[in-house]
Simulated assay, not measured.
Amino acid sequence: MTTFRIAVIGGTGPQGKGLAYRFAKHGHEVIVGSRAAEKAEPIATEIAERITSEGGSPVVSGSANADAAAAADVVLLAVPFNGHDELVESLAEQLAGKTIISCVNPLGFDKGGPYGLDVERSAAEAAAAIVPTASVVGAFHHVAAASLWSQDDYLDHEDVLVCGDSTEAKETAQELARAVTSRIGIDAGKLRLARQLEPLTAVLISINKKYKVRSGISISGL
């Protein structure tokens, strides 16, 4: 298995923490990133202690976002859409030339429930425009944070959809999907399709609320 050094920017949030746990549990080196190192370090310790209690030997650390991104081979963005562009701009130097995986969802919430925001470009496309030398893919949008932090060894009832314009970057994200679902992620097409994948998360949230479940995406026919 190919292993990576992965910076999870937004690693103190539920989605980032869950993905950091899954990656570290399955042999990848993980750096939990936050705006301040003192916020990231306790989360890194919590993840490491949990994996150790499960019999693993994790390599997990916590750091400020810029230091985490600079030290990593792959950078996963798991941050709120509000403020996303400003954060990516602040890390442009550290992100240059790297593989970036975006699981950011531009969502809104009102009395009618969740919905996809009407944006000019997807979060993944925005990251690609801000850091043009990076290889950006969209992935892991539809995996629930609670499922990622659950006791399940793998979320093998779900698929991870990956979109991007770089074949190599997509293959990296597809390989990382094994740490979550136990199987390779699915190539879902070009980066522009993040415009459809990101807001689809609102549909899953609505299903979860209606049926009291943690729904996911599963692709038939492959």
Rank of each mutant, 00 (worst) to 15 (best):
F4T: 03
V8N: 01
T12K: 00
T12M: 03
P14A: 15
P14V: 01
G16S: 07
G16T: 09
K17C: 07
G18A: 07
A20D: 02
Y21P: 00
F23Y: 14
K25F: 00
V30N: 01
S34W: 01
R35E: 07
I43E: 11
T45C: 01
A48N: 07
E49K: 12
E49G: 01
T52W: 02
T52P: 03
S53V: 00
E54Y: 01
E54V: 00
G55S: 08
G55E: 10
G56E: 11
S57D: 15
S63R: 12
D67I: 12
D67N: 11
A68Y: 11
A70M: 06
D73H: 10
V74L: 08
L76K: 01
P80A: 02
P80D: 03
N82E: 14
N82W: 02
N82P: 00
L87P: 01
V88T: 10
E89W: 03
E89H: 12
E93T: 15
Q94E: 15
T99K: 04
I101N: 01
S102Q: 03
C103Q: 11
N105F: 06
N105I: 03
N105Q: 12
P106H: 06
G108S: 08
F109R: 14
K111W: 05
K111V: 07
L117A: 02
V119C: 06
V119T: 14
V119F: 08
R121W: 02
A123D: 02
A126D: 01
A126Y: 00
A127T: 02
A128S: 13
A128R: 05
A129P: 00
I130C: 04
I130Q: 05
G138N: 11
F140H: 08
F140G: 04
H142A: 05
H142D: 04
A144H: 10
A144E: 11
A146R: 09
L148P: 00
L148C: 03
L148W: 05
S150T: 04
D153S: 10
Y154S: 05
L155W: 06
L155R: 03
D156E: 12
D159I: 05
V160M: 11
V162R: 07
C163K: 00
C163R: 01
D165V: 06
E168G: 04
A169I: 09
T172H: 01
A173T: 04
Q174K: 15
E175Q: 12
L176V: 03
R178K: 15
R178A: 07
R178D: 02
A179V: 02
V180C: 06
T181S: 06
T181R: 10
S182Q: 12
I184M: 14
I184Y: 13
I186Y: 10
I186E: 10
A188S: 14
K190A: 15
K190L: 12
K190Q: 13
L191S: 03
R192Q: 13
L193E: 11
A194S: 14
R195Q: 13
Q196E: 14
L197C: 03
E198F: 08
L200M: 15
A202K: 11
V203E: 13
L204D: 10
L204C: 09
I205F: 14
I205D: 04
N208I: 10
N208E: 12
K209T: 13
K209A: 15
K210D: 13
K210A: 15
G216Q: 12
S218I: 05
I219F: 14
L222D: 11
L222P: 10
